[in-house]
Design a protein around this nucleic acid. Structure first.
Length: 583
RNA sequence: GGGGCCGUGGUGUAGCGGUUAACAUUCCUGACUGUCGAUCAGGAGAGCGCGAGUUCGAAUCUCGUCGGCCCCGCCA
């Protein structure tokens, strides 16, 4: 149907007789001559309809073409007349003089223009996603996604990893996110769960001796959506036997660098820095620090409590720490600073103390309590000549986390995030457990199959919160793009963990009995990681939302605006599944 | 579960107690043989997401509801 695509013709093809097919883009009708931009996935080529070159019939058809009609053109490649070349088009030196035109399909009126510049609300875009995906940017995103996936597959294949598909219909397990459930028709009243990740499957493949597994795996979680979260997302999931954390980290760094090269066309600096969980929280107030800018958190408890500010003294006496960060070079208004006091309270702080510094002078609501020496001392501690110091007093960890959230707010408000920077880091040495307020019990920070660090094993029962895990997260620009761990490969240790998590033995034997049985039968030491593929691409491409790299995403309420999913089903379908609505 | 922002011709916006609901673009008609965001002339197209209420009067105010987006919780 076509001899060339719309992006490949150039001055090297002059005089060639060609056939092109594609969509009618911008049309310029001069009465006696008609120009159109013919577009396909590969590019845009100008086609000229001149009545001297084609039949009267075809010329009249060309004048009646509409945007997004699908046509086939036969014609000759010619150099554009001097002065009419278009340097903004890769095919701008040439044009195709049409000698024949076939209208392959008409296009009904469309809700928005297929134009890079057109501003269209996401609601409308999602309602006509096939048109939205006709836009070159979206095609670029999907193509880069494909190339990245291909790079990952090639890389892992080279390294001896075997791609294995794991079930979509699996067993619901108690830990973790809410499951999507699928009712069983053959066994009424029972349900499959869609996998939140292939975690257990891949561990079992290690027990099988497959040694190295990977999968571009769809993961499904029935939780609330965000800009970086969809109910189904794709992970580059991998697992290997006889490995230590560094083996996985090195491998993943190499792979991520290669994907980055594919997508962004340049190399990455390696190795990625490593930060312990404790350092990350202390310095950045987050377990996924954004290190594209400074604003590091400093503990100033001793200095700040030494002054006459009662609030600080009392807080410290009650066990709080005073921490702060400095915003250099700025001169915000008092109104703006008061606004921040309010915002930080909304984050859960009891208050926010600010000190404006400029050339040795200080302005602060608490200046008279702290006194000149302490003010100067704080400025020195933060290395601040001119700018603002912000401080909070709260329990150690809470103070850090508050400032961590505040830090992101400031970076965004004062435009401190440099564009086109990619700050990767590993966060390691996570605690194995954390205390869950709601259920009043211990829960796993990662998942219950994560191995503790061997040197902390003795504290498992006595001081479980002190136990660190062999888990590692890969963080990029403040986004967690991957996480993994060395897994527990011994049934006995796995049972100890279940016990500490306060799971009933009967329950875990029922839910995870198959895993324990497998671990008892020659399970090798193993570990792995999963990379959030959609997030990785979103961040690499600097896009605002994960939806930009997913062909058919859901809205925040989990709906597909194009198909109308989720939808009601017929009474017959429900009956087959032994289901009935109760509300 | 909670907080915030937003729903006005096909699309993107303006209007924020009394307007013939404005602008741009798309679309339609006509003119035009070198345009490329073509140009020029003319025309069509919304009663303001939906429902109550306040008011002499509501796109503008209030409440509810539906939908979209951002965030907290949640997401091992």
């Amino acid at each position: 149907m076509r001899s060339h695509n719309c992006g490949e013709l150039s001055a090297g093809d002059l005089d060639r007789e060609v056939r092109l097919a594609g969509w009618v883009g911008a049309r310029r009708d001069h009465g006696g001559i008609v120009f159109i931009n013919l577009r396909d996935r590969y590019g845009v080529t100008q086609v000229v309809f001149n009545p001297e070159r084609l039949s009267r019939d075809d010329f009249e058809k060309s004048a009646a073409l509409h945007s997004e009609d699908v046509i086939q053109v036969r014609g000759r490649v010619t150099r554009r007349p001097a002065g009419t070349e278009n340097p903004r088009m890769s095919t701008g030196e040439i044009e195709v003089l049409a000698e024949g035109l076939v209208l392959l399909n008409r296009c009904a009126p469309i809700p928005f223009e297929i134009d890079e510049a057109a501003q269209v609300s996401e609601t409308v875009r999602l309602g006509y996603r096939y048109l939205d995906l006709r836009r070159p940017v979206m095609q670029r995103n999907l193509i880069l996604r494909h190339r990245a996936a291909r790079t990952a597959r090639e890389f892992l294949s080279e390294k001896g990893f075997v791609e294995v598909e794991t079930p979509l219909l699996t067993r619901s397990t108690p830990e973790g996110a809410r499951d999507f459930l699928v009712p069983s028709r053959l066994d009424p009243g029972k349900f499959y769960a869609l996998p939140q990740s292939p975690q257990l499957s891949k561990q079992l493949l290690m027990v099988s001796g497959l040694d190295r597994y990977f999968q571009l795996a769809r993961c499904l979680r029935d939780e609330d959506l965000r800009a970086d979260r969809q109910p189904e997302h794709t992970q580059i999931d991998l697992e290997a036997s006889f490995v230590e954390p560094e083996d996985i980290q090195d491998l993943v760094e190499e792979m991520v660098a290669r994907i980055f090269q594919t997508v962004n066309g340049r190399p990455l600096e390696r190795p990625f820095p490593r930060l312990t969980y404790q350092q990350a929280v202390d310095v950045y107030g987050s377990d996924k620090p954004d290190r594209r800018f400074g604003l590091e958190i400093t503990d100033v408890t001793e200095l700040a409590a030494a002054g006459g500010f009662e609030v600080f003294r009392k807080a410290v006496a009650a066990g709080s720490r005073i921490k702060g960060l400095a915003l250099p070079g700025v001169d915000p208004s008092v109104t703006q600073l008061k606004g921040y006091e309010e915002k930080v309270r909304e984050l859960g702080a009891r208050g926010l103390v600010w000190i404006k510094a400029a050339g040795g002078n200080f302005q602060s609501p608490v200046a008279k309590f702290l006194g000149p020496e302490i003010l100067a001392g704080l400025a020195g501690k933060f290395g601040l000549e001119k700018g603002v110091i912000f401080m909070v007093a709260d329990a150690d960890r809470k103070a850090s986390l508050l400032l961590g959230a505040f830090r992101l707010m400031l970076a965004s408000d004062f435009n401190l995030v440099p564009p086109d920077r990619f700050c990767f880091l590993w966060v390691v040495d996570f605690p194995l457990f954390e205390h869950d307020e709601e259920s009043k019990r211990l829960t796993s920070v990662h998942h219950p199959f994560t191995a503790p660090r061997p040197e902390d094993l003795d504290y498992l029962e006595s001081e479980p919160l002190r136990v660190r895990s062999q888990a590692y997260d890969l963080v990029l620009n403040g986004t967690e793009i991957g996480g993994g761990s060395i897994r527990i490969h011994q049934a006995e240790l796995q049972r100890r963990i279940f016990k500490i998590l306060n799971l009933e033995p009967a329950a875990w034997e029922r839910e995870f009995g198959f895993l324990l049985a497998a671990l008892e039968r020659g399970a090798p030491p193993h570990g792995g990681l999963a990379l959030g593929f959609d997030r990785l691409l979103t961040t690499f491409l600097g896009l605002p939302s994960i939806r930009e790299v997913i062909a058919f995403p859901k809205t925040q309420k989990g709906a597909c605006l194009m198909t109308g999913a989720p939808s009601e089903v017929s009474p017959e379908q429900l009956k087959d599944l032994d289901l009935r609505r109760i509300s």
